[in-house]
């Protein structure tokens, strides 16, 4: 680990200022991903700005929904009565992620900011386009490992089937974000130019030509909270995570479902998938198809087929072309209690 400066911020404004004034400065929240990245020298910080003292851990009911502070711990959110009552999908998704120890440390903001677990990203002897030039330390300014995408033509069993580019086929690793994408969350941030809100669908981005950018935050911007609208979608919810072991493994494919049912009819529904793209993958076509329809296996199969349009395998992950629609069907059956 390279030497770095450490600052503790007491207000969001101070934190933003500390990170904005120099390159190579990073916010440090739970540290469950950033510290790994620093140890592996994927991130070589000049300064870490500790934001753990910021008063941003509140979970509260607002006029339109629920607001979760960016510094709320994943485990605290998952177990909070408001979340369990109104947003069971979010609770389930959080509990499907990581391990109990990690969930006790990881924050909501940090969860959104976590980097991909693509192995090529973490090993600078192998090519990756997600790593930028080294920001500090003795190698400052030099490319942090060779460019290219190691996963294309390499070990890509865990990789994306939607929204990929020639530069990158990595996936976003979060479970929580799948639920937030499905639930139409809004991200409130503050930064050098003031406050703004970002719709969750616009928060993460596809790799395109700039895979080093995971999200649309501007330099120095800090996540303050997440707003989630309250509605009738909480009653029929399920987060299905298919993975290589039963706990503490990233998703091969995950599916978040939240629906409102009347009898056998789906009044409204939200669907998002994880483990398949560089960002949480919302299944709008499938949602549109299912709205107003009966919860039947045939309809679920059709929705899954619609959801898979445009999917593309890269060899080792071709199985996801089958596993993903299967998982959509399974998750829909469980959520709508039709199995």
């Amino acid at each position: 680990m390279n030497p770095f400066q450490f600052t503790r911020a007491n207000t969001p404004q101070a934190a933003v200022l500390a990170v904005s004034k120099e390159s190579g400065a990073y916010f440090l929240a739970g540290g469950t991903n950033l510290i790994d990245l620093v140890k592996r020298e994927v991130v070589i910080p000049e300064r870490l700005v500790d934001i753990n003292r910021l008063p941003l851990a509140t979970i509260e009911e607002t006029a339109s929904g629920i607001r979760i502070g960016a510094m709320a711990k994943n485990s605290a959110v998952a177990d909070h009565p408001l979340i369990k009552k109104h947003l069971p999908l979010l609770s389930m998704a959080l509990n499907a992620g990581a391990s109990a120890q990690l969930r006790n440390m990881a924050t909501v903001g940090g969860n959104m900011m976590q980097r991909t677990r693509c192995p090529y990203f973490y090993d600078h002897s192998m090519p990756c386009n997600k790593r930028g030039p080294v920001q500090s330390g003795p190698s400052k300014g030099q490319p942090n490992g060779p460019a290219g995408c190691g996963a294309i033509g390499g070990v890509n069993r865990m990789h994306a089937i939607f929204g990929t580019s020639e530069k990158c086929i990595a996936v976003h690793p979060s479970d929580m974000c799948i639920a937030l994408a499905a639930l139409d969350a809004t991200v409130n941030v503050t930064g050098p130019k003031g406050n703004r809100s970002i719709h969750f669908a616009e928060f993460h981005r596809l790799p395109g030509d700039a895979p080093q950018k995971d999200n649309t935050l501007l330099p120095g911007e800090l996540i303050l909270s997440v707003d989630i609208p309250k509605n009738e979608l909480g009653k029929y919810a399920h987060y299905l995570k298919v993975r290589d072991r039963t706990s503490y493994a990233f998703a091969l494919v995950s599916v978040g479902v939240a629906a409102d049912m009347k009898g056998k009819t789906i009044q409204d529904i939200r669907l998002a998938m994880g483990g398949v793209a560089h960002k949480p993958w919302r299944l709008k076509e499938a949602e549109r198809y299912l709205k107003g329809k009966e919860a039947t296996l045939e309809n679920f199969k059709q929705a899954a087929t619609l959801a898979m349009q445009g999917a593309k395998g890269y060899g080792e992950n071709d199985f996801k072309l089958t596993l993903a629609p299967n998982s959509i069907i399974e998750a829909l059956q469980i959520a709508t209690q039709t199995v």
Binding site: M126, V155, R245, Y248
Partner: peptide, 16 residues
């Protein structure tokens, strides 16, 4: 080279 040489990606059985 190994691509999963850590405890997160090399899966030993967990309690679950």
């Amino acid at each position: 080279r190994f691509v999963n040489n850590n405890f997160a990606d090399y899966h030993v059985a967990v309690h679950a």
